[in-house]
């Protein structure tokens, strides 16, 4: 059996960059901008995997990304995994009905993800936590959602480049979409 080295390299680069972006969001942004809400860079990576990968690969990426992300939050791994998988499912459901590829579609999906994020968090919190989210901090979410959409384009370009390096044609977008 031939080992898909390029594909493995792509996986590694994606997870590594996700950890790097998360560290940037939690540390660099905090030290420079203080309490001002940071863009959810990790969410952009999750959206990219959900939008450009087939279901099995997206699910696998959700697991790998959750391993990397759990180090940066107090949320337990299980809750974060459920949240990531739910988010991935929502995005794949949309992708299976509406899909045209490219950065515009990607940014739109990031917008959907940032809007649905607090709802999913609230739901998972109600499900998991003894002391669930009382009132989501809406203002922070709004600012963060706007910044996330702005940051999504360069991250999309970077990940598309990874896909090209891994010889996945057209950013692997050719493999997904409505049948």
């Amino acid at each position: 059996m031939k080992i898909p080295w390029y594909w493995l390299l792509s996986l590694f680069l994606m997870v590594f960059t996700c950890a790097l972006l998360s560290a940037m969001q939690t540390s660099l942004w905090f030290l420079v901008f203080g309490r001002f809400p940071a863009p959810m860079l990790w969410l952009v990576v999750l959206v990219y995997c959900s939008v450009t990968r087939p279901l099995w690969e997206a699910a696998m990426m959700a697991y790998l990304l959750t391993f990397a992300l759990a180090a940066f939050t107090a949320l337990p791994f299980e809750a974060l995994l459920i949240y990531s998988l739910l988010m991935m499912l929502v995005l794949i459901l949309i992708r299976e009905r509406v899909y045209w590829g490219g950065p515009t579609f990607f940014m739109l999906m990031v917008g959907v993800a940032t809007v649905s994020a607090p709802v999913l968090f609230w739901l998972t919190s109600r499900w998991f936590d003894k002391n669930p989210i009382f009132i989501p901090e809406i203002f922070d979410w709004l600012i963060s959602a706007l910044l996330t959409m702005l940051a999504s384009l360069p991250i999309y370009r970077l990940y598309s480049w990874y896909d090209r390096v891994a010889l996945l044609d057209a950013g692997s977008e050719g493999r997904v979409g409505p049948r």
Binding site: S27, E137, D140
Partner: peptide, 14 residues
């Protein structure tokens, strides 16, 4: 203090 939480709904610092 060198960092904070990844998620808005959690208040942790590093």
């Amino acid at each position: 203090v060198i960092g904070r939480d990844l998620l808005h709904d959690h208040n942790t610092i590093v």
